[in-house]
Amino acid sequence: MQRNETLVLALPKGRILGEVVPMIRRAGIEIEPEFDNEDSRQLRFKTNHPGVDVIRVRNFDVATFVAFGAAHMGVAGNDVLMEFDYPEIYAPLDLGIGRCRIAVAAPQEDANREDPSRWSRLTVATKYPGITKRHFAARGVQAECIKLNGAMELAPTLGLSRRIVDLVQTGSTLKANGLVEIEHIADITSRFIVNRVALKTRPTEIGGWIERLREAADAA
């Protein structure tokens, strides 16, 4: 069952892509021009290396493609890596881009009034149910997560949940919605990730790309 030998590099759409592409380019990978066309329906792109293709997927899906070995390498935030905690993903390199943090936030008045040490359970609106459950379980609280894909900041004011767990970059969205950051969970940056089996069975090739990305990240 020998599949095609082409290495697939998965890059995340959206916020981080603008920072990722120059770094990939510094590592010597030029992606075909169609990649920059926002309206393109193409999902898989050739590069100047005949043995390397690039795919563009949602950031959560980068981790999934790499974990299952459908892509061999990728770039993903450690928020995504923490959420899934896939044992099949190695994250050998911190690219130092896409900096933000993941935090717990609540309406100011609730944060002042409540005593979290008395809680046994709590509803939280989040895109990260895994991280949220682990974070609260570590101090003896069951978090019942309501999975939202955006506009988390609406949840507390509309009575959907008492807390939210979300990425915070500057804090201005929280502030605009009357929320305050009350707990820091982790600092987030983008990582260069590789599939475990791919690294084990093609150590020289994949190891070579890790080195080139390391140089590109160090030069930044």
């Binding site: 069952m1 020998q2 599949r3 030998e5 299952f68 070995g69 084990k200 069975t201």
Partner: peptide, 11 residues
């Protein structure tokens, strides 16, 4: 040790 085969998902 772990045994792998190129291009095959899993161990």
């Amino acid at each position: 040790f772990t045994l792998f085969a190129k291009g095959v998902r899993g161990e």
